[in-house]
Computed example of a mutant assay.
Amino acid sequence: MTHTPKWNTTDIPDQTGRTAIVTGANSGLGIATVEALARAGAHVVLAVRDLKRGESAAATVRGARGTVEVRRLDLADLASVRAFAAAWQDPVDLLINNAGVMNIPESRTKDGFEMQFGTNHLGHFALTNLLLPHLTDRVVTVASGAHRLPGNHIHFDDLNLTGAYRPVTAYSQSKLANLLFTLELQRRLAATGSPVRALAAHPGWAATNLQGADASVLRRAVMLVGNRLIAQDNKAGALPTLYAATQDLPGASYVGPDGLGEMRGAPTLVGRTAAASDPASARRLWQASEELTGVTFPSPSGREVTEGAR
């Protein structure tokens, strides 16, 4: 029996005249998000590391009322993040922090950060803050049910997990960071009276190429079976992101599938762990992220400000 979602892309409000930036947009959840927003009338920017792949992905978006364009962005290189933001001059309604890497072998970003934490969290942290002066509506960051893994926490004394790297530990830490980032971003936006909202979403179990780079042969085999028997396709997996991006929801909302174990189903508001709801940890992570990236929360005037200047 085919599962028919209670909410799907036909329920997206008209996006004509709106601009969205989607990171990691050349495949998987990203391209599904791009296509749905463009079909609803938005102008969508595919922010991708590989321009050739991005252009190929953009060419698959057909029958859209909106438009698409491709710009280069490497979240594992803060210079690239700064260049992308510096080149942006126009208002942007939606920033969708979708890109990510999962359970990969140990490696480092251009700036020396553990790759999963550096890409999934720090790159998006820097990008969001640099683009905030242009944002008019909301930021949606794609998290994961992996934030719920037992014992998962932010390793504040060793964010790079130096000498203690485990792929799953690093991934689950980065996804917990996504939720804490959303929590603290929303607090700061509300404190400054900004109309911009910060939300998060997770796709459940979606069959994408994200799992193909897993460092474990056993996990790759399990994922392959699960993708065939349990997972949603990328279009269904993108629905929570699209719901968070287009529905009137409170800031700091977290959206995921409504099915068993939040693995599949229609998008709905879901809960998060106590560790992902801790405002003290969220503030501590924010301060650490500012120190690591050199990027700070912008003042209402649009200038970056330091923690001590607030």
Rank of each mutant, 00 (worst) to 15 (best):
residue 188 R to W: 11
residue 182 T to S: 07
residue 196 V to N: 11
residue 144 S to C: 06
residue 211 Q to K: 04
residue 146 A to P: 00
residue 224 L to Q: 12
residue 163 G to E: 10
residue 210 L to D: 09
residue 153 H to Y: 07
residue 225 V to P: 03
residue 176 L to M: 07
residue 153 H to W: 03
residue 191 A to M: 04
residue 144 S to E: 05
residue 190 A to D: 13
residue 144 S to D: 05
residue 195 P to R: 13
residue 144 S to L: 10
residue 157 D to E: 15
residue 223 M to P: 00
residue 146 A to N: 15
residue 199 L to I: 05
residue 164 A to Q: 14
residue 159 L to T: 06
residue 163 G to Y: 13
residue 174 S to C: 10
residue 214 D to H: 12
residue 206 A to F: 04
residue 176 L to E: 07
residue 175 K to D: 05
residue 204 G to Q: 06
residue 160 N to L: 09
residue 176 L to R: 04
residue 203 P to S: 12
residue 172 S to C: 15
residue 170 A to H: 08
residue 197 R to I: 00
residue 192 T to K: 13
residue 195 P to N: 13
residue 165 Y to S: 03
residue 219 R to W: 05
residue 154 I to Q: 08
residue 153 H to D: 12
residue 176 L to A: 03
residue 194 S to R: 12
residue 201 A to D: 05
residue 208 T to W: 10
residue 169 T to V: 13
residue 221 A to V: 11
residue 204 G to P: 07
residue 184 E to K: 09
residue 167 P to Y: 03
residue 161 L to V: 06
residue 151 G to R: 03
residue 178 N to T: 00
residue 183 L to F: 08
residue 200 A to E: 01
residue 183 L to I: 10
residue 193 G to F: 01
residue 202 H to E: 01
residue 199 L to E: 03
residue 147 H to T: 06
residue 153 H to E: 15
residue 187 R to S: 14
residue 186 Q to M: 05
residue 218 L to R: 07
residue 206 A to W: 04
residue 185 L to D: 02
residue 206 A to E: 07
residue 160 N to G: 11
